[in-house]
Write a protein that binds this DNA or RNA. Structure first.
Lengths: 156, 156
DNA sequence: ACTATTTCGACAACCATGTTGTCCATTGTA
DNA sequence: TACAATGGACAACATGGTTGTCGAAATAGT
């Protein structure tokens, strides 16, 4: 009879796993010339994607208010990762696009994430990692970016 | 040749897994009379434990400043989950202890977490869940509570 | 015993990020 | 043409974390 771990360990381990990966990512990003980024910024760049979006759309995608999305865009714009443009077909929309620096960061992030995943595969075995991912996919919502996280954790 | 998922999916799934569990926990806690708790509050109660601590010690345990820990204690005290007492042997220390309500919440949380873990076990199979936990244990630091999270995510 | 250092708790100032509410310009529709 | 919906900006507010400072109390050192 194997004693099971207390139930509260699972969420904590999930969070710690996330944390470890993100910390490693940002340590490496900083080494590659992208210091100053906050943990969530990478995901915001990822969520914006190569084609750009608007603040309102980004908010919907991330599950936060358009105002909050707008503030985040402000921050990333100040850091030089995003640029705002206007849409000739709709004067209300302000399209947010990655700058070259933003695109560079996104590419590096992708490579680093793949590398980190490779390290997990080395440590755990490819099959077990695949199984882990499958299991998580089964237990989590499909919308990868509906993180919500910033707001939901701190409260507000 | 099975195509591997992009590396950035793994951290996101870990985070989403955490989120799902915590959301479920708090939905159930609210149903059981403990509405108004923030996601991190449960972990703070957990980290305080049945014997109580001080704000400074709690801060060290959680990996945040004593001031931040103090503020969190304030919040939980306002909500009726914690009570401050004084230590006769050290007039500087203000011992923070769970109130009956706090202890009740902690017990219920434990039961709910076990139940949620059981649901994952049903969905994934006990062996796979055990493997998942083992793998995460292998890839994450041992100090379960050194979350840091609040500060590190939002930035500051 | 007296002093110097450490520790605890509190307060203040500041920053980041979220929320809601309001308002205006623009677009699309009845 | 009038009206509703949308996008963006601004303001006010709450939370939670940080650093810095300070006084009170405990501890170490001479």
């Amino acid at each position: 009879m194997s004693s099971e771990p207390p139930g509260f360990e699972l969420p904590l381990r999930l969070l710690l796993g996330f944390r470890v990966l993100i910390d490693d990512l940002h340590a490496e990003l900083a080494r590659q010339g992208h210091a100053g980024l906050r943990p969530m910024h990478g995901f915001v760049l990822q969520a914006i994607g190569p084609h750009g979006t608007t603040a309102a759309e980004l908010g919907r995608r991330l599950g936060i208010s358009k105002q909050a999305a707008g503030k985040t865009v402000d921050a990333l714009e100040r850091l030089g990762y995003l640029a705002r443009g206007s849409d000739p077909r709709d004067a209300r929309r302000k399209v947010v696009r990655l700058t070259p620096r933003g695109a560079d960061c996104l590419e590096r992030s992708a490579r680093i994430f793949d590398d980190l995943r490779g390290r997990w595969a080395d440590a755990l075995g490819a099959e077990r990692l695949t199984a882990l991912e499958e299991d998580l996919r089964r237990m989590t919502p499909s919308n990868l970016f509906q993180l919500d996280v910033p707001g939901w954790f701190g409260g507000g």
